[in-house]
């Protein structure tokens, strides 16, 4: 089995207004090179889980581990190995131009100007946004801003990439493009990817392991195929399964011998054969 990158069980955090968020239920265990999707409706604790995992929030119990270390106590050590894209992109993009923003982390880590430029050019080409280099960030579209934030997170080629609701506000094409980029990093650098989302469809296509959260608890985990066979439990967690999945699931429930799938072609082929 590949090396364990992250582990979280029973962590909790008390916010300034005394709200306590407990991440209970099952444990989260992530291994090198995995593509993890944390699914759950709004307010289910996904963002808190991410902040606890990265050491940005202090856990008042349980066990949190990142790269074999307590992320809170060893924050300076673990932060160099994480690339992160937050839900609020506007707040994350802090420099006025794309070039300055993407070069921000390499400069902070005191790389030479030559290497900063080299890394900048490489990541821009990889993500396919080299035409945006000198643009003012505020004038970019939502999808472009997400790509710039991704470039800023990946420019140091960290072994772990974490994204909080990356597909929110994107059209289906942009979602697919973003998911393809994450796959590319995973293939190219063996980057471990953890993303939180309530987009079951894109997560199902992208992830090789999914965790379902509801009311602060991790209630289910497994491969997408396994979880998609438990569509009633997904509904209980307030997750809206993709139409094609629900259709194949309902057909199966009504006695049709079809495996629930996200693949339209596969489902179509089966239905044509049946008729």
């Amino acid at each position: 089995m590949a090396k364990r990158i992250a582990y979280l069980k029973g962590a909790s955090h008390i916010f300034a207004d005394n709200t306590r968020v407990n991440i209970g239920g099952l444990e989260l265990e992530v291994h090198k090179g995995q593509k993890i999707a944390i699914l759950g409706p709004n307010g289910s604790g996904k963002t808190t889980l991410i902040l606890l995992l990265t050491g940005l929030l202090k856990s008042s119990g349980g066990h949190v581990e990142l790269f074999g270390l307590d992320p809170r106590k060893n924050f300076d050590e673990v932060k160099k190995r994480i690339g992160i894209v937050f839900q609020n992109i506007e707040a994350q993009l802090i420099a006025p131009t794309v070039k300055e923003d993407v070069s921000f982390a390499p400069r902070n880590y005191r790389l030479s100007e030559e290497e900063v430029l080299q890394r900048f050019e490489k990541i821009m080409v990889l993500i396919g946004i080299e035409n945006l280099a000198d643009k003012i960030i505020h004038y970019l579209s939502g999808g472009e801003k997400k790509k710039v934030a991704l470039a800023g997170a990946m420019v140091m080629e960290p072994p772990l990439l974490i994204l909080d609701e990356p597909f929110e506000g994107l059209d289906p094409k942009a979602r697919q493009e973003l998911a393809s980029l994450l796959e590319l990093f995973n293939d190219l650098y063996d980057t471990t990817v953890i993303l939180s989302t309530h987009d079951v469809e894109t997560a199902g296509r992208f992830a090789d392991q999914m965790y379902i959260m509801a009311e602060g608890n991790i209630i289910m985990k497994g491969k997408p195929k396994e979880l998609f066979n438990k569509i009633d439990e997904l509904k209980k967690a307030n997750l809206h399964a993709p139409g094609i999945l629900e259709l194949t699931y309902e057909l199966r429930k009504r006695g049709v011998n079809i495996t629930p799938t996200l693949d339209v072609e596969k489902a179509l082929g089966f239905l044509i054969n049946q008729t």
């Binding site: 932060k79 937050f86 802090i94 902070n108």
Partner: peptide, 17 residues
């Protein structure tokens, strides 16, 4: 306040000291 919190987190994680 919330926006600043996110900005600060992003700055820290991107090596800003």
């Amino acid at each position: 306040y919330q926006t600043n919190e996110t900005t600060q987190r992003a700055l820290i994680l991107r090596g800003y000291e």
